[in-house]
Nucleic acid binder design. Structure first.
Length: 436
DNA sequence: TGGGGTTAT
DNA sequence: ATAACCC
């Protein structure tokens, strides 16, 4: 490392992106092995949100309506996946397992993780050189490989202090294989991995061989990978809104975005977004792998066809709250903010019509979070109903299609509070006496 | 289109 | 509080 720095060139990072195969379906098949081998879909309301590969072979797609899916595939077995508890648990086990190898693990949704393995790679690189080993084998696929790279000879690269990029990425592919092996052996889950020099590229390359395979991207193939994207919205970081605005500017693919005048783009999207996405179009992404740690928020929501009275809203809230409180209690930290989100029916503009109101949780209630008692629930319902009335005039007709409750602004318990689960999980020694 | 999450403004 | 992004 110091050698490359003194040579005036920083060695590249090595990032792994791990992406579990049809995650919810896998969790369901582990829980009920009889489902294995059958086409399986996971249903939320009237949608098949994901399905296993047997179902995909028969034409079922992610986010297909149950109606269409059953038409395509009458043998399709459906399980309800509206309760995410089990998925969430398994998801965190995956992240924690990766955390045993390396501290820099960032979650993306429930089924993806980025790991910055630069330090692990450097350790192995040094060991390799000292042991006089002559070559390293790539694990899995090489993106765009014309078939010539299987074993990379270390010596040729090791002597070149300016650029050990290939060796580092190949070592990265071996580490990625170990990650996948551990996830398979310890949790029974399969998934894909992509290895590259940044998050963007690792994510893009992880999807190139699908399911349960891995791919490493070498720098000379970076341009091909990024150009393989048909539409700009396939670039992670360019979402629906930005893609529409780019289209207005005549930008439809990655090459258009690369070639577009920066100054015009900056005026259209703001300097920050413009510079970031234009760098993405070149495959450049300097964003760090930020360890996710424990969640920043806990939420629970339910969607439905219609909810149009105050009483119904209260019922929905009372349905959601106990579960959510149990999750917060298990976590051990105290939330300081509560939020109510609703979605109002509208035939036009189906996408995006959520609004929310939030407020601080009164301190006397926060104290009670440490205890499981239910006398916290009715005051919280009262607060949530107040938030509701800030959004909706209950004297006028209304039509909700979603209610969501979120606890955020989570803080650790004061250290004087002993006996919580946080105390037993997190404290390494009972160093300080009681504060009380 | 579900039932979640995150960060930036 | 909203808006954008991610799965």
């Amino acid at each position: 490392h110091s050698e490359s720095v003194s040579a005036g060139r920083a060695a590249c990072r090595v990032i792994v992106h791990l992406d579990l195969d049809c995650f919810y379906a896998q969790v369901e098949m582990i829980q009920n092995p009889e489902l294995r081998g059958k086409p399986l879909g996971v249903q939320q309301k009237y949608l098949v949100v994901t399905c296993n590969y047997e179902a995909r072979k028969l034409g079922v797609k992610k986010l297909m309506s149950v109606k269409d899916a059953k038409e395509k595939c009458p043998q399709l077995v459906l399980v309800n996946g509206e309760d995410l508890t089990r998925y969430r648990e398994v998801s965190y086990r995956v992240t924690e397992l990766l955390g045993e190898f390396c501290p820099l693990v960032e979650r993306l949704g429930f089924d993806e993780n980025f790991v910055d393995i630069t330090e692990m790679v450097e350790k192995r690189q040094n060991q390799l050189q000292q042991s006089g080993c002559s070559g390293v084998c790539v694990a899995g696929h090489v993106y765009n490989n014309q078939g010539e790279l299987n074993i990379l000879h270390v010596e040729k690269y090791a002597l070149n202090l300016h650029d050990t990029t290939h060796v580092r990425l190949v070592i990265g592919s071996q580490i990625a294989e170990e990650f996948r092996g551990a996830i398979r052996a310890r949790l029974g889950l399969t998934g894909c991995a992509g290895v590259a020099s940044n998050k963007l590229l690792s994510k893009l390359v992880s999807g190139t061989f699908k399911p349960n395979q891995q791919t490493v991207l070498l720098p000379e193939s970076c341009r091909d990978l990024i150009r393989s994207l048909a539409h700009i919205q396939k670039v992670p970081g360019i979402g629906y809104k930005t893609a529409r605005r780019l289209e207005t500017l005549g930008i439809r693919n990655v090459c258009d975005l690369q070639a577009f005048p920066s100054a015009v783009l900056e005026k259209e999207l703001g300097v920050s977004v413009a510079q970031r996405i234009q760098k993405l179009s070149y495959g450049e992404d300097d964003s760090p792998v930020t360890p996710s740690g424990p969640p920043q928020s806990f939420s629970d929501e339910d969607s439905f066809k219609k909810c149009s009275s105050e009483v119904e809203v209260k019922e929905k809230i009372e349905e959601l709250l106990p579960n959510l409180l149990a999750r917060v209690y298990k976590d051990g930290r105290q939330p300081h903010t509560i939020r109510l989100t609703i979605r109002q029916f509208s035939s036009t503009d189906k996408w995006f019509n959520r609004e929310s109101r939030q407020c601080p949780i009164p301190p006397h209630l926060i104290q009670k979070f440490g205890k499981e008692s239910s006398d916290v629930i009715s005051p919280l319902v009262a607060i949530l109903m107040k938030l509701f009335r800030k959004m909706i005039d209950v004297d006028l007709p209304f039509h909700l299609t979603l209610v969501s409750i979120c606890f955020s602004n989570l803080r650790d318990l004061p250290s004087s509070k002993k006996g919580s689960i946080g105390f037993y999980l997190k404290q390494t020694s009972p160093s300080s006496g009681s504060g009380k």
